[in-house]
Amino acid sequence: MPHEFRMPSLGADMEGGTLTEWCVQPGATVHRGQVIALVETTKGVIDIESFEDAVVEKLLISPGEYVAVGGPLALLSGADVPARRISPAARALAARLQVDTAQLKGSGPDGAIGMADVQAAGSRPSPRAGIRLAIGAALGRSKREIPHYYLQHSVDFTPAADWLGAWNAVRPVPERLLPIVLMMRAVARSAAEKPGFNGYFERDGFVASAAVHLGVAVSLRGGGLVAPAILDAAPKTLVQLMSDLQQMVTRVRNGHMRSSELSAGTITLTSLGEEGVESLLPIIYPPQVAIVGFGAPTLRPWVVDGQLAVRSVMRLSLAADHRVTDGRQGSQFLLRIAELLSKPGEL
């Protein structure tokens, strides 16, 4: 029985996308993870991957057409999915507002379409809104719905910087590491150890994730940012994380991010680099429940073994969801990240 392959939601800030190119033809067999289509969104062109092994029955739209999130792109056969339901009241409202329900993503149980979904679609602004509007919508929702709490902590980054300097000094450029990789490893390990910061907050509450899919905020040239995820980051070594990050940033710059990496993040890391300000208070990217921020390392007076010294000090920050954790757990989480960063040889 053929079923619809629909426009996936690649994050809370995506309304829809325009088909750039089909990568498959009718009759083709596709595998889970295979790129089916290229779709242009406010974040650039995204490679849309199949969620399953299936056969392409029919392509429903042509390049150049815009499809809202949840709207059908193609018919696939191979796996059974439940039929979509729509309430009679929602169907009547859709007729009145001239909303095409085939294009709607239902928010009810099993994707059932309710009146609120139709209402939202009927009042949707221009589908090709810029990335600034998209970020505003996602983070506005975050600020409205998520009761954030914020914690900050300073860590002496000198041991990490020294360790990295020594590592890089004896290796050719392509094998060197960037400081952010140490932060990524510290966050990924801490997130795997401390429950409550890694997962999604959905309709029925918090769902912890066993794997850590670490979102990393990457600035886009000309403004805006995206936070694609390094999948299953916790067991990865520093060298693997560096390689994954390098490839991911290249895909961002080329405008070829993968749908899986854009929607998979279970926690996000944001770093201002080496030349930014010393501290930031980030906003959680829904449906995640935590984001860890790293300010730029700054030379500061610091007490080492009872003596005053000049050290490179980094301010860590955590924004977390009070529906899931409290400041006490948050404090333990942030202290664990700081502890790992202060012993870089063990990372």
Binding site: V173, P174, R176, L178, P179, I180, V218, S219, R221, G222, L245, Q246, V249, T250, R253, G273, E274
Partner: peptide
């Protein structure tokens, strides 16, 4: 000029 970040510089150096 282009908000070059540390990964951009690393890739250019490479």
């Amino acid at each position: 000029q282009f908000d070059f970040d540390s990964m951009d510089l690393f890739n250019f150096a490479t």
